[in-house]
Design a protein around this nucleic acid. Structure first.
Lengths: 107, 107
DNA sequence: GAAATTGTCAAGTGGTTACTTAAGTATTTT
DNA sequence: AAAATACTTAAGTAACCACTTGACAATTTC
């Protein structure tokens, strides 16, 4: 069982590209092969493979080759890490807001 | 009241840079000026200003100039949009997982 | 075993990005 | 009003990025 490390910087960088978001979108709907992923995208298969490398290194997806077909799946830890980073920032901001509210309510 | 539009692509791209994440981190702790933001960062103030432009255009922060000081604050809609995008992908993936579980449980 | 399918690898290219320097503007302090 | 502060703007640069082409390798189908 291969343990993947998740680098939050790589995750956000990976999600910054529209093609890669489209890929994540599709893969999140279920496991899918490289060429089926490439089908609706108007770029070469080679380019799709490069995007997949970025996504896999970031920890957002996992891929496995069986015969001549490489199948891509979501690696939930990647999305979770990004979600957590954002939530942490947002709750810190809300905490500060609350304390400001307290100050205004006090004499 | 200026309505900011949030482009999820710009948001993720903005968060892909470590310096900009450090800035968001700091700004999430409370409103802060540009030069105080620049202080702990080992880059020029001009570079910080450029990062702030990216962050503001993405909808992650909002800035306002009073006198000679520009103050930066979190724009919660930016973080929320990113959080929602991720959550949507993750829950779609979980839905599929559940249905797979159902199939395996059936005859 | 020949042909088709599915992916892989390497090199090149044009555009973008993060950064610097340097010169300038507006505001506050002394 | 001179000096210090807090940015702002523009131009240049080196590194990176998404993409293509083209040649290749492995597997499956006919």
């Amino acid at each position: 069982m291969p343990r993947l490390k998740v680098d939050i910087g790589q995750v956000f960088h990976a999600l910054g590209d529209p093609t890669r978001r489209a890929i994540v979108q599709k893969v999140s709907e279920g496991p899918i092969s490289v060429s089926r992923l490439a089908e609706p995208l108007s770029i070469t298969l080679a380019a799709v493979v490069q995007h997949l490398q970025v996504l896999e290194e970031s920890g957002l997806i996992r891929t496995e080759k069986l015969g001549r077909v490489r199948t891509c799946r979501i690696e939930p830890a990647g999305l979770s890490a990004a979600e957590r980073w954002i939530r942490d920032r947002r709750s810190e901001w809300e905490r500060k807001l609350d304390r400001l509210g307290d100050l205004l309510a006090e004499p």
